[in-house]
Simulated scan of single mutants.
Amino acid sequence: MSRQRHEPKNVAPEIFTADDGQPKGQHIKNVLTALVHDSRDGELLPSERVLAERFGAARMTVRNVMVELESQGLVRREAGRGTFVQHPTLVHSEIFRSFSEDMRMRGMVPGAKSYRSRTRPAPRDVAAHLDVAPGTLAHFIERVRTADGVPMALERTNLSAERFPTLLTEMGRDDSLYEVLGRVYGTRLETAEQSVSIARLSPADARRLEVPDYDPAFLVERTAVDAMGNIVEYGRSLYRGDRYAIQMHVSRSANR
């Protein structure tokens, strides 16, 4: 049985044959790179034969471009199945940074959506982590953090309303929380205690992160403190398991 042709989706036909003055191989690479970035992770790409026809190029030229994209981690090729989109995995390292700062350092544009915030009496467990009495007013902020428009993490964090009374009026959906704390209150977060575990995304959380129900995720629990050692923030955030890897520095103890 012959294999069904898989045609490029949502791509203007003239893109393939556009004369942009670049060498054919570079033109193919530019178009396919844009196609990969606009496709979902794991999506099947058209075959080399179909792409060669669309570009009016030799299959070997298309194959060389695919090999280059594979070396860059943008696609993965599976014998007998085809070539699939593979979005890069981001390393969640030990270095303490805000999400916005981390994404900018990677050359990506940080953002957010599905923003919710409110001030509420702190539940007992949140109060304990913030080192305040249960029932003390605390700000709760929840949002989906994005990089280049792609959902990456579901952040849920808590801060003292007594210490940061106007935070929710100062804070915008896309703002870096840490930058707002520094600009408005002169508070700089210096260190954090963090624990990481594996969780399964509930259907509601999976929809917000645009992944299948019950996909694995990293649950990152963080308590951040300022230069004086005062607790500033306590949060529990979910990072997409298909987009992140955890990096840790380990060493032997000195007496071994």
Rank of each mutant, 00 (worst) to 15 (best):
A245V: 04
R200Y: 11
G235Q: 02
G111A: 12
R173Y: 07
A161M: 09
K9D: 10
M152N: 02
L137H: 12
R77N: 04
V50T: 14
E68Q: 15
M248V: 14
V184D: 04
F84P: 08
S98L: 03
F140G: 04
M171I: 11
V50N: 03
G186H: 09
I95N: 13
L45C: 06
Y178H: 10
V225C: 12
V196G: 09
L35R: 08
M228T: 13
R97A: 07
I231P: 08
R81W: 07
P88S: 00
Y115K: 08
E78F: 12
R156H: 08
A57Q: 08
V250N: 09
H129P: 00
F99V: 03
R40V: 10
Y234A: 02
F96W: 11
I198E: 11
R59P: 11
T191D: 12
V75Q: 09
G82Y: 00
A199K: 14
D38C: 03
Q247H: 14
S160G: 00
M171C: 02
V109H: 09
F16T: 09
G73Y: 11
A127M: 03
G111Q: 07
D19C: 07
T187S: 05
F140P: 01
Q4S: 14
R5D: 11
V62D: 00
V144K: 04
P46E: 04
A227G: 00
G73V: 06
N230K: 13
G235V: 02
V75A: 00
D148I: 03
N158E: 05
T191L: 07
G25I: 14
E94W: 06
N64K: 14
G135C: 01
R104W: 08
L219W: 04
S39P: 06
S39V: 08
V220A: 05
Q86E: 13
A127G: 02
V144H: 05
L238K: 01
E43G: 00
P134W: 05
A133Y: 13
V150Q: 14
N255M: 09
N158H: 15
A52W: 05
